[in-house]
Write a protein that binds this DNA or RNA. Structure first.
Length: 111
RNA sequence: UGAGGAGGCUGGGUGAUCGCUCGAUACCUUCGGUAUCGGGAGGAAAGUCCGGACUCCAAGGGCAGGGCGCUGGGUAACGCCCAGGCGGAGCAAUCCGACACCAGCACCACAGAAAACAAACCGCCGAUGGCCAACGCGACGGGAUCCCAUCUGGUCGCCGCGGCUCAGGUAAGGGUGAAAUGGCGGGGUAAGAGCCCACCGCAGGGAUGGUGACAUCACUGGCACGGUAAGCGUCGCCCGGUGCAAGGCCAAAUAGGAAGACACGUGCGGACUCGAAAGGGGCUGCACAACGGCUGGCCCGGCCGGGGUCUUCGGGUAGGUCGCUUGAGGCUCGGGGUAACUCGGGUCCCAGAGAAAUGGUCACCUAUGCAAAGGGCAUAAUGCUCUUGCAGGACAGAAUCCGGCUUAUAGGCUUCCUUGCUCG
RNA sequence: CGGGGCGUAGCGCAGCCCGGUAGCGUACUCGCUUGGGGUGCGAGUGGUCGUGGGUUCAAAUCCCGCCGCCCCGA
C-alpha cells in the first residue's frame, strides 16, 4: 500500500508525470506491479514536527480511504503543500479524487 | 475596592465509527495472520546549554586545553536548588547581581594643564630672599638774603607704607572628563594645605557575636593604594576520550582474505648487475632501547611490523536481533530538617515507533469571544444576569534513560504578601 | 548524537584577534568629457552591523540567551 524503498522513490521522482493542485503535488509512474503503491514525502522545510506529522497523517488517511479504487500498476508520490493542513478534510478528499480521476488513475467504480 | 509582588496546580471533556502500534491469551500451517482484552506523547516531549547513568577505547604520567568562582548546606553530580551575607533598585511586599585577585604586561579615544607618577595651565600669595620706592630721621653742600634761625628743592645713608611678581610657595577656586590623589565644617596661614580639630569615609591590628561569608564596638594611623581580568594573566577547585549510528550476537550477495605455528635479522643509504619498465640479485657503509605505522591536540609511554613454508576457516557490508525501557521511578502515610532535601513503611507498573505508530469523520457538552433581539435587577455614567445564533481551543510530537537550565505558551483555578482609598 | 562556520549599504565582501573614525568594489544620483551613447574622471546618497540582555565611561568588536542559513563526522 505504501511506497518505502528509496530506490523506487528516486525512480518516480526522475521519471514520473507531475500534477499540481493547491494542496499537493502528485507524481505518478507506471510500473509492472500488480497493485499500486503511494509514498508521502514531507521535507524539513515544510514546518515544525507537529505540522509535518499532521500532513503525513492526513494524506495517509486519504490513501487509506481510496486505495481500493486505485488503478493497478502505478507508483504515486504525494508532496503536500502547507495550505493542506488547514483545509477541511472533505474538501481535500474532493480535490484528491478529482485529480486521480482526471489522470485516469481510478477504476471505473464510482465513489 | 484599586494598584502591585511572590508562588502552586491545570493545559478541553464524553460517546459512536473506520484505522495504526505494542503486550497478554486463544486459534490457524513455520515467516506470519485472525479474534478478544489491555496500554499508547509533554510541561515543556523543543533548543541541545550543563551534569550524570550506561557503553567501548592501555583508561598510565606530564603539558596544553576547557569549565566554575561571596559563605554554609542539599545532591549520584552539576554551571542546578535552598538558606544566609554584601552591593544595587523600589514607599513596601519583593526583585537583580560572572560577587576571588590589579603583583607583572597591556589599554584608558575626544576633551583637559595634567590620565597614572606625580606634576602645575589659569588663578591665589609673594610672609622669606631680590628689585623699585612714598613719608619720616640724619649728614653734606646750594638758593631766597650778608650771618644765625626758618623755608625750599638736590645728593647720600637709615627706616621701610606700598609696588613688581624675579626667585619661590600653594593646590582653596576655575574649567575638561566616565574617572583628577579622601568629603564637609571650623581653626590656622602671606596664600594655602590632614598643617591641627570634630563628624563621616579609608587602612591596620584587636575584642565580641557567628560553622562561615560578615557584622558591631572601641583603639591606632593623618590618608599611602585610580579604573579595566565578560584584556593577557594569577590563585583555588573540578574535568581522560567516546557517544545507543555507543556496544554485543546472527548473518545474504559480491570480493578474496584473515588467524595461528615454525625457522630466517631488520631499516636507511651507496655503487654494481639482470631487465624496455615495474621489479629482482648479490656486495658494501651506517644505525639498531633503531626506523616506520597506529594510538584523532603534543611529548613520554603503549601496541604492531618484511618475505617464505605448514595448519585452520574466519572476518565483515546490506539486513535482522539484543541493547529498549524497573528507574538517583510514581503515589500515599509517618519521622527529621527554617528550606532545598532526606529516612522508614505500604502500594503501583505508567508509550516503546523504526521512511519512524499515538490518526480521520460525526454528534453532544463546556471555559471563552463576537453579534443581534427580547426579558429581569440595580444605576449618575453604566453594569450584572437569562434565552437564541455563529466561532471555538495556546505552545507544541517521545527516539537510550535520568537531574537541571533556557526558550515558547490562549486561557482557567488557587494560596500568601505589600500598599492606596472608602465604610464600620 | 556530536562538531564547526556565517549573518555589516540593493549585491559581493573588509573591519572583530588587540573596544573609541563603520570602510572597499559594484549598483544608484549629479556634474565634466562626447555631436549622442558607452568608457573614463570627480562629487554625493545609502547601513536597526540578525535579535534581546549584560560588562564597560564607551560594544559591529568582549560575554550570555534566542532567530535564520550553510557545512562536516559517527
Amino acid at each position: 500500500m505504501f511506497l518505502r524503498v528509496s530506490r523506487e522513490i528516486e525512480q518516480v521522482k526522475r521519471q514520473g508525470h507531475r500534477v499540481s493542485t493547491h494542496f499537493f503535488n502528485l507524481l505518478f509512474f507506471r510500473k509492472s506491479n500488480s497493485f499500486s503503491q503511494v509514498g508521502i514525502i514531507v521535507g524539513r522545510r515544510f514546518g515544525i514536527a507537529v505540522r509535518r506529522n499532521r500532513a503525513k497523517r492526513i494524506f495517509r488517511e486519504l490513501v487509506r480511504e481510496t486505495h481500493n479504487d486505485l488503478a493497478p500498476g502505478y507508483a504515486l508520490l504525494i508532496f503536500p503543500k502547507r495550505d493542506a493542513i488547514v483545509e477541511p478534510f472533505q474538501d481535500l478528499k474532493t480535490a484528491w479524487i478529482g485529480s486521480l480521476r482526471k489522470q485516469r488513475l481510478l477504476t471505473s467504480k464510482p465513489l
